[in-house]
Design a protein around this nucleic acid. Structure first.
Lengths: 229, 229
DNA sequence: AAAAACTGTAAAGAACTGTTACAGACAGGA
DNA sequence: TCCTGTCTGTAACAGTTCTTTACAGTTTTT
């Protein structure tokens, strides 16, 4: 069975240690971060759920939450010392899925984590198949097949392809792609994506001149075209 | 736009009335039930979310929750007077997605409802359809269709059309349009917009002489005419 | 009818993309 | 440890597409 990956963002070691041990006892794969910056860099690792302290040493938790929401739908549970209604409602407003007020019981946190994962885990398909099985993307083994033949993509290439294929038809900008692929605060060159796209196309397209799967949207980015089966 | 359907199961009229009015104010389609039996009969109506009181006159709320879970994944928020940790954890354990302890603030309830709906609703595309589907603008794929036929617009053309179509009937000045399209500190020529409008008309209008969708407002700018469906 | 505002066109100019080549980073094996 | 091959990010170039400009001509308003 696949272990669910959970990220805990909390600057107080004491708290994150306790939470971590509780979650690990339940069989989760737990990573911890202490700062907002660290968090944003880790996002590319595709966690299944994030537990986020509202008060962080560098960036405000709300800011981090919004940033994550900009590029991902991962469930976020906020930890907050503030318990006034305004703060609580605000937390949900900025994109958190839930919050827990400190001091909280670890058991309750675990229960909430499970409740959220139960929901998201459902419709999640681990294998994406397009155009009557011509292109198959297996997210767990990170394998791609075209007409039954395995295609070897690098990690970066795989991430880009997956990011596009998860939303067939949707136009994704180069920035959105770098965010998902390299981490949020990547400062580099947009054109990196172009280079990777070229390589991916060489591997999955029949005719590079006329790409079928990854289309270029002039002035906007790229989009994946395909019919899920 | 499709109204989300919410079912409130609560035997105390006073409470359900308040919650109902708050939710309706937010544009939800609200139904109420007072007993467990009633609830189970209503489930087939496929609600988008259910608010369920733990204490009901006939069947226990937990029982109802389990029954619903047997046939549906609809998000369930439990209302409970019990606030001991055990009860709360139990609530989540039997399949509820969330719980709120009475007495609760209606604002918070609304916020939680929205948070849950946001999650299930994702993947929903933002599509503008006008005049009985004659003109369709899909914002995520950046595609426009006229009478089912795809129209290929450039990114700038798309932005201008979208900007106009988002506010049918509203007159937008050339300045407003350049701002949306090129950014705020654009110093250039207003006439750029004219050129783009011309190009867009060529692509989406049946008769360039008599544009139906984009009308010129002499001395002011342009407006989009269309009925949303 | 005069003035003001709008449209069409074509060409210059700007911006964007695909491609190639290369250097540094990294990982695995000898 | 050092070597090797692979991967990733950078840079530059050419070809393409789009945007802007300028101007001439048309339409609308007063």
């Amino acid at each position: 069975m696949h272990k669910e990956k959970i990220l805990i963002v909390e600057d107080e070691r004491k708290i994150s240690d306790i939470v971590k041990s509780y979650l690990e006892r339940e069989g989760f794969d737990v990573t911890t971060a202490e700062t907002g910056r660290e968090t944003l860099k880790l996002i590319k690792d595709r966690f299944d759920l994030i537990i986020l302290d509202l008060k962080l040493p560098d960036i405000e938790g709300e800011e981090v939450c919004r940033s994550i929401r900009g590029i991902s739908d991962v469930p976020i549970i906020m930890l907050t010392a503030k318990s006034s209604e305004d703060e609580r409602v605000k937390g949900l407003g900025i994109g958190a899925d839930d919050y827990i007020v400190k001091p909280f019981s670890p058991r309750e946190l675990v229960a909430r984590v499970k409740a959220h994962l139960r929901r998201t885990k459902k419709g999640e398909k681990k294998v994406l198949s397009f155009n009557k099985g011509i292109l198959i993307i297996d997210t767990t083994s990170m394998e791609v097949k075209k007409r039954e033949a395995p295609v070897s993509l690098t990690t970066t290439e795989f991430r880009i392809l997956l990011c596009l294929a998860e939303r067939p038809g949707a136009v994704l900008s180069r920035l959105q792609l770098t965010n998902t692929v390299q981490g949020y605060d990547f400062e580099g060159y947009d054109r990196v994506i172009d280079a990777h796209i070229k390589n991916i196309r060489h591997k999955i397209e029949d005719n590079i001149q006329k790409p079928v799967f990854i289309k270029t949207v002039y002035g906007a980015g790229y989009k994946f075209i395909g019919v899920r089966d």
